[in-house]
Design a protein around this nucleic acid. Structure first.
Lengths: 330, 330
DNA sequence: CTGAAAGCGCTTACAG
DNA sequence: CTGAAAGCGCTTACAG
């Protein structure tokens, strides 16, 4: 493991000062064409890779940010991370991954470490069930963006438009002639549940039941048992709070002899591909566009690093992905 | 956003030289108790956070590594990342996340960027279907570890023991009195498929069929249609190449009127909780211990950074997680 | 026990 | 057009 080539090596080899090498490589100042050529050639030949740490000492920017996840890099953090990284990598900005798991002490330790590493900003992600932010991330001296999680009021928060997504689902069902649409969803203490329910209510009205339970297939099956049968509500459409519930509901309906979507059309939420596509029939679902959310976070972060100030709450639209559970083609 | 406190500020405020502050904070050299106290107090009061970038310029270590994922931070990378981070964070080592998506050009760009950021090592993760490594990661001057993916021969490679895991599954089924165990698995061009099949064959022999197909529930259902019925193999046990296949198989059996596990006991692979637990009945499955794999990668990386040399291929054991699809209690 | 100085690898006014 | 020098925020022999 030999010492890496430094700007000194290049300067010596090219017979110029390190200042000149710096100017050539950064295309600053005025340099004779001949010198420029020679230095460039030498730098290339020596495989010179400028030490970005040394650069940071001047610029005050490290070219890296921290991403603090609260769901152990779970299913929701993944696409956000992907979108974030896709935008930031081409800009030369690295992303430190930190897992806080909703533990304030761990989060604080991570923040300390990130600040010591001179990160230029922090993105916090993964939804908690209630609105209270896990830790005070204010006055850190670096921009903070919350994605898929509520932040402090003076930072920037990026959220999917849960309510709008729910409206999308119900309107889709309505457009297919299903007007008695029930809502089977998760625990009420989730803000997302309340928002989706609100969107549902806006489009559907309050006449049809809303059933709260767990986020599981089992709950989906159970809820169907409560909704269908002689003398029961027997809705012709179901809007489910997530794809697992939707899948459970779909299975239970099939086993009761009801056809999806002919007898009951179903729309889920999350568009969790592996779940939605494996269901029989494949599930129509609402996609929160989390990768787009992450990408937007990346763009905002880049802007904030260069001094632009952004704050407040921004809602990004959801998107309906239609499959056989509403359309019927399989 | 005021300028961060530097070692100069602390020195001035405490009335000592910056060298003395450095010694106090790093507990090096000999310092008068009184001075030590005063400096410590001032540093605390001023919330002095040493710039780790400046430190790195001396130590030659940046305290950060890169993690290059090839599955867009997918389901397999997550637990590896979690284990890796859990070991490295307490050591003050940050992890840069990079998504290469099996694109050599993207991977090369990431490597360039990581080297510029002076990372102390690289972990490459996520399995490709065949053995060929995606890019030459050799002679970079920093330690490289491949996890859940084959690496070059001169680096360190950490893999789950697929073959041993398969043996575990078949032996478990045998111990429950199922001696006619079939194997339904994924595409043969996956090395993992070949290894699991080899483990299966060792324990089961070659008398019972092996069916190759997709990694999907649909394939699991299809395979069951091929295996069960009058004049067919009708095995009393199934070892499936992943949990989705196992789930599909289980559904198909139930719909044929066969009981799981009374008539057919089923063991999956991956122990993908959300899939295994939602199946009816919940699936017994083989867990590759990916978080442990990631943690081991973290420990090895820490050792390699301090100069220890590790290389070769290391296999980590899988673990059987028994659920109702073999045990029958629900 | 403490400080001045050189140095880590760069950038950037400032002379010439 | 180019170089010498100061400086980014630290550490570490070396004097005293």
């Amino acid at each position: 493991m030999t010492r890496a080539t430094t700007i000194r090596d290049v300067a010596r080899e090219a017979g110029v000062s390190i200042g000149t090498v710096s100017k050539v490589l950064n295309k600053t100042g005025t340099i004779a064409l001949e010198t420029r050529k020679r230095v460039t050639e030498v730098a290339e030949r020596l495989q010179f890779r400028p030490n970005s740490l040394a650069k940071s000492l001047h610029s005050g920017l490290s070219g890296s940010i921290g991403l603090i996840s609260n769901d152990s890099f779970g299913r929701f953090t993944m696409p956000i991370m992907e979108g974030l990284e896709a935008v930031l990598a081409p800009l030369g900005i690295g992303v430190f991954m930190c897992n806080a798991t909703d533990d304030p002490a761990r989060e604080a330790a991570h923040v300390e470490q990130l600040l010591a590493k001179q990160i230029d900003g922090i993105v916090v992600t993964a939804r908690r069930s209630d609105r209270r932010p896990a830790a005070q991330l204010t006055g850190l001296g670096v921009p903070v963006i919350h994605v898929f999680a509520h932040g402090d009021d003076d930072g920037l928060t990026l959220l999917p438009d849960d309510k709008g997504g729910a409206r999308l689902a119900v309107e889709h069902l309505h457009s297919l002639g299903r007007h008695k649409v029930a809502h089977i969803t998760g625990p009420e203490h989730f803000e997302a549940v309340r928002l989706r329910q609100a969107g549902y209510a806006e489009a559907q009205g309050d006449a049809v039941p809303v059933l709260h339970g767990k986020w599981t297939e089992g709950w989906g099956r159970e809820a169907v048992a409560q909704l269908y049968g002689p003398g029961k509500a027997n809705p012709d459409g179901l809007f489910c709070g997530n794809d697992q519930i939707a899948r459970g509901a779909s299975d239970a309906l099939r086993e009761m002899g009801l056809r999806v979507p002919q007898d009951v059309a179903i729309c889920g939420f999350d568009n969790w591909a592996v779940m939605a596509e494996a269901a029989r029939p494949p599930l129509t679902s609402i996609d929160m566009n989390l990768a787009a959310l992450g990408a937007e976070a990346g763009r905002c972060m880049a802007a904030m690093i260069t001094g632009q100030s952004e704050q407040g709450l921004r809602l990004l639209p959801c998107r309906l992905v239609a499959r056989a559970s509403t359309l019927g083609m399989e």
